[in-house]
């Protein structure tokens, strides 16, 4: 899809999820794939090592739609996922300058 107009952009509501996972090579594709396979566009991703280095924290910005709660329940079932929480969009707002440059 072409870049949407700013006004249109406003109307689409978004959700940011914070997902704590055990870190290994396949975990990103498990988590991100779960959304993309359900035709849910992942608009922003951030992943950082957490704590002891065996864990990571992933932030995903996805389209908020009525199917999101069901998708979150599926994410919670992934073996490598410890927890999923909704959080505010602040983290990606702070990073938005990176894409502009």
């Amino acid at each position: 899809m072409n870049a949407s107009l700013p006004a249109e952009n406003q109307r689409l509501s978004r959700a940011v999820l914070r997902i704590d996972v055990t870190d290994h090579a396949g975990v990103m594709s498990h988590v991100v794939g779960l959304f993309s396979r359900r035709a849910c566009n992942v608009e922003a991703i951030l992943c950082l090592p957490a704590g002891d280095g065996r864990h990571s924290r992933i932030w995903l910005q996805v389209e908020d739609n009525p199917r999101l709660p069901a998708m979150i329940r599926q994410v919670e079932k992934l073996i490598d996922v410890q927890s999923v929480a909704r959080c505010d969009a602040g983290i990606f707002e702070r990073l938005s300058g990176l894409a502009a440059g």
């Binding site: 090579a25 396949g26 594709s29 794939g33």
Partner: peptide, 14 residues
């Protein structure tokens, strides 16, 4: 095989 089996397994390992 790992990638192919992600969506059709409960879990998978390499």
């Amino acid at each position: 095989t790992y990638g192919l089996s992600i969506p059709i397994t409960k879990h998978n390992f390499l």
